[in-house]
């Protein structure tokens, strides 16, 4: 069975380690916070200006002056801090953030990512994504393996306008965990019940399949 969005987030949460500062993008990445082990210390950064982002507020306690990068009302954890946008991107560009998790429309086998624009259709802007992918050492992409028409989004080359070049290291999709290695996708894990053949068929980019590929655990 292909993973749900929640399960993709749950699998990615395993990559979040004790002591990490983590930036979560909009969409599936936001869900990752719900699955991080509670016996480790992690601080979430939101690029609009908070480190130590907490869960949504209780009803009636929403504050217009306390939102995340998705413009959702949030809370601040004990020990949180607020800062301006330039400082926020000093954290990001200066590689002080340990892990960046973001969504994508397409990923290519050389690590290129496209997630901000569909010419003539969707022009919303890149927000902080270009700064994040250009700077982060450790980027995990959360995405669906194929689009609604069943076409692969794991490609030899991106067709959409790029967000960044040669930057993605790891991709977690509804079908597989992939790592980018020497200009190819290495298949690391498969979703429970999904065969290597199914993953291969859904992947347009070159796929390295070495030995037995284990099923994901959560």
């Amino acid at each position: 069975m292909a993973l749900s969005k929640e399960q993709i987030a749950q699998r990615i949460a395993k990559e979040v380690k004790d002591g990490y500062y983590v930036n979560l993008g909009i969409g599936i990445p936001t869900l990752v916070a719900n699955f991080v082990r509670d016996d480790i210390e992690v601080e979430f950064q939101s690029e609009n200006g908070i480190l130590g982002m907490g869960p949504f507020p209780f009803e009636g306690e929403e504050d217009a002056d306390l939102i995340n990068a998705g413009k959702q009302t949030i809370t601040a954890m004990k020990g949180a801090s607020f800062f301006d946008s330039a400082k926020s991107f000093s954290m990001i560009r200066g590689q002080h953030v340990d892990l960046t998790i973001l969504g994508a429309m397409e990923v290519a086998q050389n690590g290129d990512i496209a997630n901000w624009k569909i010419p003539g259709k969707m022009v919303k802007g890149m927000g902080g994504a270009m700064d994040l992918v250009a700077s982060a050492e450790n980027i995990i992409v959360a995405m669906m393996h194929t689009n609604r028409a069943g076409e692969s989004k794991i490609l030899k080359q991106c067709s959409l306008p790029l967000t960044g070049v040669n930057c993605v290291k790891k991709v977690v999709t509804n079908l597989a965990v992939l790592e980018i290695e020497d200009g190819k996708f290495r298949l690391l894990e498969r979703a429970p019940g999904v065969s290597v053949e199914e993953i291969d068929a859904a992947t347009e980019g070159n796929l390295i399949i070495d030995g037995d590929i284990p099923e994901m655990t959560f």
Partner: peptide, 12 residues
Amino acid sequence: EKRIEQRTVRKK
């Protein structure tokens, strides 16, 4: 007015 764009809450 301080309008909220995305009101997200959790239940008590």
